[in-house]
């Protein structure tokens, strides 16, 4: 299929328009975060700042305990990535490579939990975490990830299924136990899928707002997403600081996305192919 010149021009026009509408707000966010407060007031619609005020970032960082929040966010991210990868790859192994009674039924249940609104389990979860003493600790956000999550299990299972059964059989004949097969053969072959799951979990943990809202009360434990919401309420009249803080919060995710774009998009595409 080839396009003639007129069609090409039309295609580019449509693509460019869509690009401006979708990516434009991000450009506005970035450039406006560098404007002086006066310019945001007087000249909110120009894209580029007249004076580039990099101090906005310094001011935003000192206006809240930014690095403390960042540390908490990273701890939650790292902890929950480890938890998700371990628990989900194990469960995915059970669902793809092992035969056991109830497997298919439980797989149906697993898919069902994806459809369950989080509200239904929100209150009991809160109480449960309180009872085990995790309320108001970072653990409240990390420990549950060691108990698996349906989406990641599903994604990993889809991948494990593509690994030929012969490999496992050969290993069994060599006397390797199930753990050995899982750890030495399946996992190393599944690095792309594991990376995808880790990436998604990292971003989910970075962005999570309702979890901290519900489970953390001490400011010293707040992650960035939650700290930023508090920032919104206390600095609502200082748009330049808000935009700078929002940019700082967003930038790592954007960079991460650029570094991992292929893995990322492939991972998302697989979720649609049930």
């Amino acid at each position: 299929m080839k396009l003639n010149l007129a069609e090409k021009v039309l295609a580019y026009a449509a693509l460019l328009l869509a690009a401006v509408l979708l990516a434009g707000p991000l450009a506005i966010l970035f450039f406006s975060s560098l404007k002086t407060p006066a310019e945001i007031q007087s000249n909110p619609h120009a894209l580029l700042p007249q004076i580039w005020r990099w101090e906005n970032y310094g001011d935003a960082v000192t206006a809240m305990p930014f690095f403390l929040y960042l540390r908490n966010t990273l701890l939650i991210c790292l902890g929950s990535v480890i938890g998700t990868v371990i628990s989900c790859s194990m469960a995915a192994y059970a669902f793809s490579k092992l035969q056991w009674p109830g497997r298919n039924l439980l797989f149906g249940v697993l898919i069902g939990t994806m459809l369950l609104p989080w509200h239904v389990t929100m209150i009991p979860r809160f109480l449960l975490l309180r009872e085990v003493g995790l309320y108001n600790t970072l653990g409240a956000l990390i420990v549950p990830t060691f108990l698996g999550d349906a989406f990641s299990i599903f994604l990993l299972r889809q991948f494990f299924r593509t690994i030929p059964e012969d490999l496992s059989e050969a290993a069994r004949i060599d006397g390797l136990g199930e753990w050995g097969i899982f750890w030495r053969i399946i996992l190393p072959l599944s690095k792309p899928a594991v990376a995808t799951v880790a990436l998604f979990q990292f971003i989910a943990a970075w962005n999570d707002f309702s979890g901290p809202l519900l489970l953390l009360s001490d400011k010293r434990n707040f992650p960035l997403a939650y700290g930023l919401e508090q920032f919104v309420s206390s600095y609502s009249d200082q748009t330049h600081l808000l935009l700078a803080a929002a940019t700082l919060f967003t930038l790592p995710i954007v960079i991460l996305f650029f570094l991992t774009q292929r893995t990322f998009l492939k991972g998302i595409a697989t979720t649609g192919l049930k």
């Binding site: 628990s87 059970a94 439980l106 009991p124 698996g148 899982f182």
Partner: peptide
Amino acid sequence: STRNRIAGYAFASPWLGGLVLLYLFPFAAS
């Protein structure tokens, strides 16, 4: 098959624990 059966539950156990604690109990409780 017995080995496989035990292994199946063992590998699924973190998630099974999660199912009971984070879904079934909350589901019934609510």
